[in-house]
Design a protein around this nucleic acid. Structure first.
Length: 335
DNA sequence: AAGTGTTACAACCGCACGAAG
DNA sequence: TCTTCGTGCGGTTGTAACACT
């Protein structure tokens, strides 16, 4: 169906609303409500299209609209919800009373998105991203090494090796997260995937094969402002910050180093190497590890009851490697 | 002080979907 | 079942305010 948008009606006013127009709209809606947005402008004496009136009312004039800066708590909720829902601004707005989808969208694009990028996190996937310049440097080094243009070939080799090792580390962690973030979660819930021998999954992990997840996010059955503790609620869209929380300790006491930034248990926690302000406060950030969640529901006998939840995953991971007897190479990388 | 670039946010646009006829 | 209409949603644009040179 092709419907002429109200913008095609040239006689109707566009652009910023005047205080007079606002008053007319508020007066009318307070007296008559807004049963029919299309008819409303004419009845209210406004030279606007209904759509414009609706937007103005919902985003600005509604009495329950909360104006002003977003609190740290709201910011945290938005990040968490976005990691689960993606750009579903209206659904995110449902969890933030007084905030509109438009406001949240703008806040995301102007503040949060920027912060995440500065922190090296892909705002779309909520995963650490590999800086393209990093890869560029690598290819330049390779080119230089091949053409013999480097003053000290040995130094460049060491540098190159370090780069490759780091990239391999990143890729491994990404694959691990990918698995943890998809099928693995369900399998953990159903017990002992990580404890069992699963060569195909291991190959997928090592080869970087992604396990696609085309499922729609599960309906939000709980208040995502406080991330659920049931494994079902994750359903492949687990807050990645939580997964990073699982990595802590698995990659040394300082966490994982990517592009010069040391990542700790969530994006909210950074070392002095990254002087950026915390995206959310560490104290309020719900770093609820997926393993924690699993332990609370699954068969305890399948998990370490003495070690930390974090160690459980990596113990299982190491066991997987050892059991398959595949390569000391990957063990070296993990070490 | 003027010009230019950047940021933040209000508003617009077009598509999708559900309800009603 | 098809068409029309109203509404909701997400992406994009326009512009005022601010920062920088």
């Amino acid at each position: 169906m092709v419907r002429s948008p109200c913008s095609h009606v040239s006689a109707l006013k566009k652009g910023p609303w005047t205080p007079d127009e606002d008053t007319k709209l508020i007066d009318y809606i307070e007296r008559n409500g807004h049963e029919n947005w299309k008819a409303l402008p004419k009845l209210a004496g406004l030279n606007r299209c209904g759509k414009s009136c609706r937007l103005r009312w919902i985003n600005y004039l509604r009495p329950d609209v909360k104006r002003g800066e977003f609190s740290e708590e709201e910011e945290r909720v938005i990040v968490n919800l976005h990691s689960v829902l993606g750009n579903k601004w209206s659904r995110i707005a449902n969890h933030l009373p007084g905030r509109t989808d438009n406001e949240i969208k703008n806040f995301w694009n102007t503040h949060i998105r920027k912060k995440l990028l500065q922190m090296g996190i892909d705002p779309n996937t909520h995963k650490p991203r590999i800086d393209p310049s990093h890869l560029l440097n690598l290819s330049q080094l390779l080119g230089a090494a091949q053409s013999g243009n480097i003053a000290s070939p040995w130094n460049s080799f060491l540098k190159l090796q370090a780069e490759v090792t780091q990239l391999a580390n990143i890729q491994l962690v990404r694959n691990l997260l990918q698995m943890m973030n998809t099928n693995t979660l369900t399998n953990i819930e159903n017990n002992r995937l990580l404890g069992s021998q699963n060569p195909s999954l291991f190959r997928a992990l090592v080869n970087g094969t992604t396990i696609s997840n085309t499922k729609e996010p599960a309906p939000i059955s709980q208040d995502l402002a406080n991330p659920p503790v049931t494994p079902q609620a994750n359903n492949g869209f687990q807050d990645i910050s939580n997964l990073w929380g699982s990595c802590e300790g698995g990659f040394g006491p300082e966490g994982l180093n990517i592009n010069g930034n040391t990542w700790s248990s969530s994006y909210g926690i950074q070392t002095e190497q990254d002087p950026l302000p915390a995206l959310v406060s560490a104290s309020t950030s719900p770093v609820t590890s997926i393993v924690h969640q699993t332990e609370s529901k699954g068969d305890p006998s399948n998990y370490s009851t003495t070690g930390t939840p974090t160690s459980t995953i990596f113990e299982a991971w190491e066991k997987l490697i050892d059991d398959d007897n595949i390569s000391s190479y990957w063990n070296d990388i993990l070490d």
